[in-house]
């Protein structure tokens, strides 16, 4: 096992443990927005879509880049916008400073 792979694996395991703890106190009303927010976070797959362009050099590669980028961008942009719309419902009443 290479040093890099071991470092990646360590980061993976520690991130899992962090993920188990980070949302422990979420109230029931925030379950759906939190699901949507977490959904937006895995939109980081868009960075992966960017990285595969480095090795795309034929028609199949370009087609995969196109579809992957479209899917991932839809995940990111839609995910954050729809989460924000859900959370708008939790803002304080009008007139109060936000």
């Amino acid at each position: 096992m290479s040093v890099q792979l071991f470092a990646d694996l360590s980061v993976f395991v520690l991130s899992l443990l962090l993920g188990f703890e980070v949302i422990g106190r979420v109230p029931t009303t925030l379950h759906t927005p939190l699901m949507s927010a977490a959904n937006a976070v895995h939109g980081i797959v868009l960075a992966g879509a960017l990285l595969i362009t480095l090795s795309a050099d034929d028609a199949l590669g370009y087609a995969l880049v196109f579809v992957t980028a479209a899917f991932a961008a839809m995940n990111v942009v839609g995910g954050y916008v729809v989460t924000d719309r859900m959370l708008e419902m939790f803002r304080p009443p009008r007139g109060e400073p936000r």
């Binding site: 980061v11 993976f12 991130s15 962090l18 188990f20 959904n39 980081i44 797959v45 960075a47 990285l51």
Partner: peptide, 25 residues
């Protein structure tokens, strides 16, 4: 897993974070 395949740390971190917090949620 895509992060491991690409050797990209931020995909690994964010993916694992969502995988674990999503399971708890």
């Amino acid at each position: 897993m895509a992060g491991f395949a690409l050797g990209n740390g931020v995909l690994i971190t964010a993916g694992a974070l969502v995988g674990a917090s999503g399971t708890i949620l």
